[in-house]
């Protein structure tokens, strides 16, 4: 049990996928201007990362490994993720229109969010079991969502402040992320 707890704490705080591992920056800066978009994106990320890590784990263990095709990992994973996102989009549109309206516009963006492929590759590389992969993917994506919501909160306030003109937008966003990452550095060493 404590093993899973450590894994969760490590994935959310110590090795936060955006603030410590630099994964998924483009949508991170792109969707952190308004709180409702940020929350929608955060939820979509948690959903897709958890689902796709589980799927890629199965692909790795039952297709790539037995047939000695591990060198095709990258191409197999990205195709699985891209088709999965398409399927989820179609499924949501047909059966849960409410959720589709909330998440729909974020789903196509997620295919090129490197956090999705990144988490899948990371969990395969560290030879995790299926349950561990699920826990790791879920915790990592929650960490991503949390960082996104925190950053959005800060950016919403700074948007109305008098900022030097050249710093407005992405540059200030990046500097804010830097300060956030600095704060999260305080967790370093808590868990290996």
């Amino acid at each position: 049990m404590s093993e899973y707890l450590l894994l969760i704490v490590s994935a959310i705080f110590v090795n936060n996928i955006i603030l410590a591992r630099y994964l998924g920056n483009c949508p991170f800066l792109g969707t952190s201007n308004r709180m409702d978009t940020a929350i929608g994106m955060a939820m979509a990320v948690v959903f897709v990362i958890t689902l796709s890590s589980a799927t890629t784990w199965i692909v790795q263990e039952y297709i790539l490994k037995p047939f000695d095709l591990e060198y095709l990992q990258t191409i197999a994973f990205i195709l699985v993720i891209a088709s999965l996102v398409q399927l989820v989009e179609m499924f949501l549109q047909k059966s849960i229109p409410g959720l589709y309206r909330a998440l729909g516009i974020f789903l196509p963006l997620i295919t090129t969010n490197c956090a999705v492929l990144g988490v899948a590759v990371l969990s395969v590389e560290s030879h995790m079991s299926f349950i561990k992969t699920l826990v790791f993917a879920f915790a990592s994506s929650v960490g991503y969502g949390m960082a996104l919501v925190i950053l959005t909160g800060i950016r919403e306030r700074s948007a109305t402040s008098p900022i030097p003109v050249h710093l407005r937008g992405t540059p200030l966003g990046l500097i804010t992320v830097a300060l956030l990452a600095l704060a999260f550095l305080g967790f370093a060493g808590m868990v290996k």
Binding site: L19, A20, Y22, P164, V165, H166, L167, T170, P171, L172, G173, L174, I175, V177, A178, L179, A181, L182, L185
Partner: peptide
């Protein structure tokens, strides 16, 4: 470390602006 990366890129972007 990560903070250094973010702050460097942020400053370069503002210089480009």
């Amino acid at each position: 470390k990560p903070p250094g990366a973010f702050i460097c890129l942020g400053l370069i972007l503002s210089i480009m602006n």
